[in-house]
Amino acid sequence: MTVSALIILIYVLVLASYLGFELISKVPPTLHTPLMSGSNAISGITIVGALIACNEMGYTTLSKWLGMFALVLATVNVVGGYAVTDRMLKMFKKK
């Protein structure tokens, strides 16, 4: 990776982290668990990495299998995470 490419990635990291710090404030306690669960589903974004690993990285058997393994796990994280968060939030509305 070239230095300038790395610097841009670090910019993205720093600004997004700052945004993450600022986004969360005064969250009502009842929303703590749904927020945790919802952001857990977002961290399933590693599914994008898993997809790439299944494809271009798949020249060797081991890395291909690891990629597919990661894809199954990340899908569980994403699908399960969003579904369970939605289920929780649906309950709040009824109250």
């Binding site: 993450g20 857990n40 977002i42």
Partner: peptide, 9 residues
């Protein structure tokens, strides 16, 4: 997405 979750978490 990763750093958003990392920081907000």
């Amino acid at each position: 997405a990763g750093s958003l979750v990392g920081a907000s978490g």
